[in-house]
Nucleic acid binder design. Structure first.
Lengths: 247, 247
DNA sequence: TTTTCATTGCGTCACTGTGACACAAGCTAC
DNA sequence: GTAGCTTGTGTCACAGTGACGCAATGAAAA
């Protein structure tokens, strides 16, 4: 923090919308900084000799403990009015830092927006030194976010929905073994609307990225559904080359 | 240039792939810097209190003289190895600048990639102070580009093709009045493949963004085609809300 | 003038993907 | 067993799309 000006690229930051899926709800990982009332997206800065994508992966690793995940850069937010130095000024004051308007963190920042998809159960939310909390929030009951983070989150969600039209989603959000209703619920949650069960299945199977396991799911009420896992080879091929059609 | 370090955000740059359409070919506007053998994409830097999108618009305005155009941010290139200080070091040397390794332009730059669509005939290519040439190049006969600009250009073209799937294109690339074959040629050029004339017409008319003029195009050989112009209201609505289907 | 021919406008046909929905099978709770 | 829910599979109608036929137009060639 003190040496940030030397370590990091100046005036450039990274913000990540980290999505997880749990109990039928899309969740976002948020941080609460000390001495600041509002919550914020996990973010960070880029080391002088670091790739920006690596920096984003590092931020995620630090916050979630996960190092293999789906990470996608989606937009730059470069409005000069988006930075709000007062947040940091206030925070520094309470931490006993000398009030220095030249401090590197008080400058204007252009931020690169990333979104990430992670498997909820694998995540161990970790606050950083400057934060007092790091936890999941359901999209429905979001708290107030600082600066333009709400705007960034909304844009991330839009980008994710668009992504859904052309690429498979699920490997990073579901357990290795899952059922078709689980996958459907995920899609419905991301899209924010109901889908027809039968049409969904037909379409998803048509993508040819699923492997059906022999044994149906045991110990559940009602008819036990088949279990699936992703055919990773075909899944990644589809990720790279894209699917056709849209929702 | 000398005061760049004070005027601009450090370590952040902008590069634009400016596309135009002329004589059945997609063209890209390139710059040739003095004392440097390779060509480059028009680019620039962001003023301390300037929006990044505004900075991109400014770069375009300076290079083309056009202030109303289609401009789209599409990706950040943040590999630390992408910058090549030797280019500028060489250039500075020949210009008689003192060899100073601390000069702001010799640092590493993260660049924001934009692509722009402009109407070829409206453009008046203008070199800047540091360049000796600014001209259109057909995609087929591109010269060597400096640093990773070839990579940026390829990514821009990919982004444009993807854009074509969901949004109308043409208003910024064609004259106000045009014919269906002209529009089709544009699409074929961007996509790099032939399209069926009759199916193209059906699909394009289905978008409901065209207005057919009463008079067919005069003074041409063969059957004279109808003339069209974009219904700007519907065009912009489609730009905003997106079209469905893909190519 | 007549013929030729490239070009354009419009229509047809088959196939595919998709939304809406019916029906049977499996499992639990009563 | 029966009721009630969930899941697997199939049907049907419709829209979008690729492939292609055919007539109209108008300049150029015969």
């Amino acid at each position: 923090m003190k040496d940030g000006g030397k370590l990091f690229l100046p005036s450039l930051s990274i913000d990540c919308a980290i999505f997880g899926f749990h109990s039928g709800q899309l969740k976002v990982l948020l941080l609460k900084m000390k001495h600041v009332k509002k919550w914020s997206l996990p973010g960070g800065f880029v080391f002088r000799e670091e790739d920006t994508d690596d920096a984003a992966a590092r931020v995620l690793q630090e916050r979630t403990g996960i190092d293999k995940l789906f990470l996608q850069q989606f937009r730059v937010f470069g409005n000069p009015g988006r930075s709000d130095a007062s947040v940091h000024r206030q925070s520094m004051k309470k931490d006993g830092f000398p009030a220095n308007d030249k401090h590197w963190i008080l400058q204007r920042f252009v931020t690169i927006g990333y979104y990430a998809l992670v498997e909820f159960s694998h995540v161990n939310p970790l606050p950083d030194d400057l934060s007092e909390a790091c936890q999941w929030w359901g999209l429905a009951e979001m708290p107030d976010l600082m600066m333009d983070h709400r705007h960034i989150l909304d844009a991330a969600l839009d980008a994710l929905r668009l992504h859904l039209n052309y690429h498979p989603v699920g490997y990073n959000l579901l357990p290795d073994i899952f059922t078709m209703p689980q996958l459907q619920k995920l899609y419905e949650t991301i899209l924010g609307k109901k889908l027809d069960r039968r049409n969904f299945q037909r379409k998803m199977l048509g993508y040819q990225i699923l492997k059906r396991l022999k044994e149906p799911k045991p110990g559940v009420a009602h008819k036990s559904p088949y279990q699936y896992s992703f055919d990773l080879q075909k899944y990644h091929k589809a990720l790279k080359e894209g699917l056709k059609g849209g929702w």
